[in-house]
Amino acid sequence: MRRTVVVTGGSAGIGRATVREFARNGADVAILARGQERLDAAVREVEAAGSRALGIAVDVADGPAVEAAAERVERELGSTDVWVNNAFAGIFSTFMDMSWEEYERVTAVTYFGQIHGTRAALKRMLPRDRGTIVLVGSALAYRGIPLQSAYCGAKHALQGFLDSIRPELEHRGSKVHVTMVQLPAVNTPQFDWARARIDRKPRPVGKIYQPEAAARAIRFAADARRKEVWVGSTTVRAIGGDRVASPLIDHMLAGSGISGQSSPEPLEGDREDNLFEPPRGDPGAHGRFDREAVEKSWQMALNRRRNGVLAGVGLAAAALLIARARKYG
């Protein structure tokens, strides 16, 4: 049975890769994003994969517009089975160098955009008692870093939102599932069009993954019925490290957190950003870090098979105990 999947921010980066991933696996896909040129290109890719596509130009910060888009999806593609909240906005700047309008905009897109999407999806899924909503998060939902206070704050807020609504759904006995995917640094166009108040071009921190790795994890999360899915060894280290040594990480980031997000190339004076208006062109899913980015995550491969891995570890431990018992028995 074909599924209908909605992907917000689906015209570029992780969202574009996620649209391709679901279409390649037989789903009809609705793409919600601002840039019409990229929307049209994403629609063509879905149709080329043999699926139906619907591109809707919408700003997810506009709640009524998201609701109208959700209604159109149901009317033209059918009942929504999976809703992926992926759209976000960012700015590389120290907190005090940002204007209130900039901070509010990042929050409106990155946090409230996912709230609007979740509400629109739940409105339709709850009466049917089925469906999955995927919140796209980040390791930065647990561990904030310099220059990204607005983005990190929004991702932290989504973590609290998830913790609140999951027990609400369980209380009512709903079969609708809400999950969150915590991603590592990903090679997307955001580093070339996020607003920046630093001297050099922004770059990801740590190991970089290709957007296809994130897309596969998002599709996995849509089916796995887990509360969270962590992607990448760096995500595991960031979240785990913050839990055991948060003050030490603060100190480390004070020394290297800003320089670590800067490329050698100077920032262009005429740089076009996407904070308030969609930029021109269609970069697709990838950014400029293809030479550094990796295609797969060994951590995610183990995560997908964690039941088998745990069973294997258990069997190995049992065999070791039996061998020891025989030796010393």
Rank of each mutant, 00 (worst) to 15 (best):
P202S: 00
P184V: 01
V205W: 14
L135H: 15
Q159A: 10
K155W: 08
R216D: 04
Q148P: 00
T179L: 12
H177N: 09
Y151N: 09
R225N: 14
W193V: 14
R203P: 03
A141R: 01
R225F: 12
T132S: 09
H171R: 13
V186P: 03
H171C: 05
R225L: 11
A224Y: 03
L135Y: 14
G153E: 07
P211R: 12
G137A: 14
V186A: 08
A215I: 01
R166H: 00
A221V: 12
P189F: 11
K207N: 08
K201N: 12
I198N: 02
L162E: 07
G144T: 10
L162G: 05
R216M: 02
P204T: 06
E170W: 08
L147H: 07
V176H: 12
F191G: 02
G160L: 00
V181S: 05
R216T: 06
L135Q: 15
K207P: 02
R166C: 02
P167V: 06
Q159D: 07
P184H: 08
I165E: 04
L158D: 03
G173A: 02
L162W: 12
A141C: 05
V136M: 07
D192Q: 14
V205R: 10
L140T: 15
S149T: 13
V134S: 04
V134P: 07
R216F: 02
V186S: 09
A215K: 08
S138N: 15
Y142C: 00
V186G: 03
A185G: 14
P211G: 10
L140P: 00
P184K: 10
P204R: 08
F220V: 10
A194L: 15
M180W: 05
P167W: 09
H171K: 10
E170G: 05
F220K: 10
A185Y: 09
S164A: 15
V205H: 10
D192E: 15
A222W: 13
L158T: 07
Y151K: 08
W193N: 15
M180N: 06
D192W: 07
E170P: 00
A224D: 09
R219Q: 02
P211W: 10
Q182K: 13
W193D: 14
H156R: 05
V181L: 04
V205K: 06
D163Y: 04
K175G: 04
F220Q: 09
Q159T: 12
R166A: 06
R219T: 01
G137R: 13
T179N: 08
P189I: 09
V136P: 04
P202H: 06
P189R: 10
L140Q: 15
K155L: 03
T132Q: 03
A185P: 08
G206Q: 02
R197D: 09
W193L: 13
D163L: 01
G144E: 03
L140R: 11
Q148T: 07
